[in-house]
């Protein structure tokens, strides 16, 4: 058996062990939900507000523009926060129902 063939066999064996030998638990990560999306959206709107404040302080945005842009961004933030609150409340009541039913079984 030549050195090249032996090297090929060893490389294949090493690769197969690495790919298929999976000891321990696998990392699956959290599932992406509407709630996590809304939290990201909230951060984006807040960042837009911070940008607007900074540009206003830098003198780039006149008073009238600033007030109207700020009001519309705050409105957007409020809508996002309201939906987050609704979903969180729904999630916590669902969790308490599950807890209660488990408790009843015990």
């Amino acid at each position: 058996m030549s050195v090249a063939v032996l090297a090929c066999i060893l490389i294949t064996l090493g690769t197969l062990v690495y790919v298929f030998y999976l000891p321990g638990k696998l990392y699956l990560g959290p599932e992406k939900t509407r709630l996590s999306y809304l939290r990201e959206r909230k951060e984006a709107v807040y960042e837009n507000l911070r940008d607007l404040n900074f540009e206003y302080k830098a003198g780039k945005v006149p008073d009238a523009d600033y007030l109207s842009l700020k009001a519309s961004l705050e409105e957007e933030a409020a809508a996002v926060l309201a939906e987050i609150a609704r979903l969180e409340e729904a999630a916590s009541s669902a969790a308490s129902v599950i807890r209660d039913s488990k408790g009843a079984r015990v």
């Binding site: 960042e47 911070r50 309201a82």
Partner: peptide, 18 residues
């Protein structure tokens, strides 16, 4: 690190308000 300052006054509409 990004910190929230000005937007802190934003209030969420009460749940179920719509």
């Amino acid at each position: 690190p990004v910190r929230l300052t000005a937007p802190a006054r934003v209030q969420a509409a009460p749940v179920g308000a719509d």
